[in-house]
Amino acid sequence: MGKSNSKLKPEVVEELTRKTYFTEKEVQQWYKGFIKDCPSGQLDAAGFQKIYKQFFPFGDPTKFATFVFNVFDENKDGRIEFSEFIQALSVTSRGTLDEKLRWAFKLYDLDNDGYITRNEMLDIVDAIYQMVGNTVELPEEENTPEKRVDRIFAMMDKNADGKLTLQEFQEGSKADPSIVQALSLYDGLV
Rank of each mutant, 00 (worst) to 15 (best):
Y129G: 14
D109N: 07
A182L: 01
Q42W: 04
V190F: 01
E146G: 15
A46V: 09
I51C: 12
N159P: 14
V180T: 02
D60C: 15
D77C: 13
I152R: 05
S83N: 13
R18W: 14
S93V: 03
G188P: 00
A127P: 15
F85K: 13
S6Y: 09
K163M: 04
R102L: 14
K63D: 10
E171V: 05
K19M: 07
K50Q: 07
Q87S: 00
N159G: 06
V68F: 05
Y115V: 10
K147T: 07
L189Q: 12
A127Y: 07
L189T: 13
E142A: 06
E141P: 00
D150E: 06
A175D: 01
S4R: 01
Y52P: 10
L107E: 02
L97K: 01
G188L: 06
D161Y: 10
I86D: 10
D150W: 06
F58L: 02
V12D: 14
T66C: 00
K9D: 03
Q54D: 09
T66R: 04
F56G: 02
D150N: 11
F56N: 02
I128R: 05
F48S: 13
E26D: 12
Q54H: 06
T144N: 14
Q181R: 12
E99C: 15
L101N: 05
V132T: 00
Y186W: 01
A160E: 09
G78P: 13
S83K: 15
A182Q: 14
W30T: 02
D111Y: 07
E11C: 15
G59S: 10
S178T: 15
Q170W: 14
F56L: 10
D176R: 04
D113C: 13
A154R: 04
M131Q: 06
G33C: 03
R102G: 04
T92R: 00
N159D: 13
K100Q: 10
V132P: 04
T92N: 13
T17C: 01
P39R: 06
K100L: 13
V27G: 15
K7Y: 03
K19T: 09
I116K: 11
D126H: 07
E84S: 05
T92E: 15
E142C: 11
T165V: 09
V27L: 07
V68G: 12
E171I: 09
D123N: 10
E26W: 15
Q28F: 12
Q181C: 14
G78S: 04
A160M: 06
K36I: 14
V71S: 14
F105N: 00
D109M: 00
N112P: 02
N5W: 14
F105W: 01
P39E: 10
N75H: 07
Q42H: 06
D161N: 09
E142M: 01
G188T: 07
E99Y: 11
E99A: 09
D111C: 12
E141R: 09
